[in-house]
């Protein structure tokens, strides 16, 4: 295990304001030297930003008076160092797995954008290198293959029965 100097804290923000809070926080950290070394805004974690800091995050600090910043998540500590979030947990956010790897042939998916938004479809082919899937709309009378990007679909059922 590598030697870690910093702790990672989770800060609660208003939904949809994560990037704004992170950028303001970065500016404040540069000006006042709060000890913040990095800020992570994972796409999969709505309403929170993760902050790596060499000092304890204190919400009473005037440098942390930022609009849409709701507070710091308090906890007992997940690892032995008393950190709220362990570094291994953060690593998962740093290298997000592409959505396409969780899609299987025969999965039932819902299209979330494009002309077929809201339609359900079955996966017939997966192109991993281009991150595309070929779908067949379930409710269509004639099965027509539709090619969409992997981020335009949401998985409803992992595998067809």
């Amino acid at each position: 295990m590598e030697d870690l100097k910093n702790s990672i804290y989770a800060l609660k923000t208003s939904a949809g304001q994560e990037r704004n809070v992170a950028r303001l926080l970065a500016r404040k950290a540069n000006e006042s030297g709060v000890g913040i070394t990095a800020i992570i805004v994972p796409e999969s974690l709505k309403g929170y930003v993760l902050v790596e800091s060499s000092t304890k995050i204190d919400m009473q600090n005037p440098a942390l008076k930022i609009p849409h910043l709701r507070g710091v998540v308090e906890g007992k500590g997940a690892d032995n160092n008393g950190n709220i979030i362990s570094f291994d947990e953060v690593k998962k956010f740093l290298k997000p797995e592409p959505i396409i790897s969780s899609i299987k042939k025969g999965s039932i998916v819902e299209l979330i954008s494009g002309p077929f938004k809201g339609e359900r479809a079955k996966v017939v082919r997966i192109d991993e290198s281009r991150e595309e899937v070929v779908l067949e709309l379930i409710e269509a009378a004639v099965p027509i293959p539709v090619t969409v990007k992997a981020d335009q679909i949401r998985i409803i059922q992992k595998e067809a029965d």
Partner: peptide, 30 residues
């Protein structure tokens, strides 16, 4: 792109070390 990572102090940041980042600034995660 998706996910935002702001590196303020690359020398003392463990995250920057993990991702081999040595310049401060904004990065995407994917």
């Amino acid at each position: 792109w998706s996910g935002l990572l702001i590196i303020i102090d690359p020398e003392s940041s463990d995250i920057a070390g993990e991702l081999n980042i040595n310049l401060p600034g904004e990065y995407s995660l994917r």
